[in-house]
Write a protein that binds this DNA or RNA. Structure first.
Length: 104
DNA sequence: CGCTTGACACCGT
DNA sequence: AACGGTGCCAAGC
């Protein structure tokens, strides 16, 4: 079982209206491959099943899946808001960031 | 088999 | 508070 499979499984379980961080996922898998998690999200072969937009940085900022395109970021934010996540100044309040162990 | 890359996290300045 | 440098790990070539 590759790390990617585990990551996909976890991300797919993120409930609506909540988000988690790369760090949380990595810790849950008992690995320190934070960066690998990011790579896996980027590849994202399970596109609809794996809502990568619900995975953010530990700071609460949205990561570069919209990266160089600020307008795309707004779209992601709108999507998150529609799911019930409040976004402030392009960042998500800690209240919405749930550790993987909380919803697994 | 070894080198390079990365959608991160942490710490110091 | 913001920016940059460093360290970690997996995947791809």
């Amino acid at each position: 079982m590759k790390l990617s499979e585990k990551v996909y499984r976890i991300v797919a379980k993120i409930p609506k209206g909540k988000v988690t961080t790369y760090g949380s996922i990595a810790r849950y898998l008992k690995t320190k491959a934070y960066r690998a998690v990011g790579q896996i999200m980027k590849h994202n072969p399970y596109a609809p099943k794996v809502p990568c937009h619900r995975v953010i940085k530990s700071d609460g900022t949205i990561s570069g899946f919209s990266g160089s395109d600020p307008k795309n970021i707004k779209k992601k934010i709108a999507l998150l808001r529609k799911e019930g996540v409040i976004v402030k100044n392009g960042k998500i309040p800690k209240e919405f960031i749930v550790d993987v162990n909380e919803f697994i």
